[in-house]
Design a binder for these strands. Structure first.
Lengths: 144, 144
DNA sequence: CTACAACTTCAAGTTAACTTGAGGTCAAGC
DNA sequence: GCTTGACCTCAAGTTAACTTGAAGTTGTAG
């Protein structure tokens, strides 16, 4: 199977065929050619998809990812952009860790109401002060 | 200013008036009454908004938040739900930390291409194996 | 050679969380 | 008492990242 078709790529990568077409349209992947109407992919597409998954998990948008890959083939990854994204991730992680600890505490706290728990109130105060905000790249439910 | 109007609440909380109306429609906040057409809010709305910000930052959807507040007034917060959300957050944090380290490394790595860097390849392999995936509650850009 | 499962395109729908705009009301200052 | 700016409602628009559906084409098993 030198040049997998879309079904094969979907099966092996776990990425739905509709998403693969969508990614192609957005310039994230390219098909190596066609047999009739049907796309044939280069085996390198799997590595590419892994890279896309990676970048997505890091909070890059598809647009940003497309730009990374841009002019020709091999990813041209801007080191400064990477460092910037790492820092952004780091700030988000800190916020989330604070939240996690707050939640954890609230879950076990014996105070009759969370409003009477000092730990919870501190968290609230921080939120009110804007220290804990929904991050710019916010954590958000993805649709099924 | 016993009962702030929407502009006052917006100013002091930083939440746009349009969002306040939207939150009211979704049952996240209530207005204490009206002067003519105009909403008057209970001062407690600020604490409520802080709580909402908190929950949003923790990755709760508005729906979930509304349910927390539900039947009447004082938040009725399900401890098990809190613990569950904390665990989810924890998993997300782990993924994001792995990503951050990967990015950090990629940013300084001297390998001519990231594909030739062992650390980066390990990350890629993990991504390919699905260990690092876009989280269920994914980090996603919020609109301006 | 024929049937048909699997592909194709293109447009429209979905979701969350808001924002924007049109058209209308009205409390308050002059 | 009149003007006006700030508020009101309701509908529609926005964004990202896809998914779904209709209608058409075709590689391939039999």
């Amino acid at each position: 199977m030198k040049f997998p078709d879309i079904a094969e790529v979907a099966r092996r990568s776990g990425v739905p065929a509709s998403t693969l077409r969508f990614y192609e349209e957005r310039g994230l992947i390219v098909s190596a050619g066609r047999r009739g109407l049907r796309r044939l992919f280069d085996p390198g597409v799997f590595e590419r998809l892994a890279l896309i998954a990676l970048a997505r998990a890091a909070g890059f948008t598809l647009e940003e990812i497309a730009r990374m890959f841009s002019p020709q083939g091999r990813p041209r990854i801007d080191r400064q952009m990477l460092a910037g994204k790492a820092d952004e991730l780091d700030r988000t992680i800190r916020r989330m860790a604070a939240m996690r600890d707050g939640l954890r505490h609230a879950a076990v706290c014996r105070a009759p109401s969370h409003f009477e728990c000092p730990t919870f109130r501190r968290l609230l105060a921080a939120a009110a002060a804007g220290e804990i905000r929904a991050p710019e790249s916010a954590t958000r439910k993805t649709r099924r």
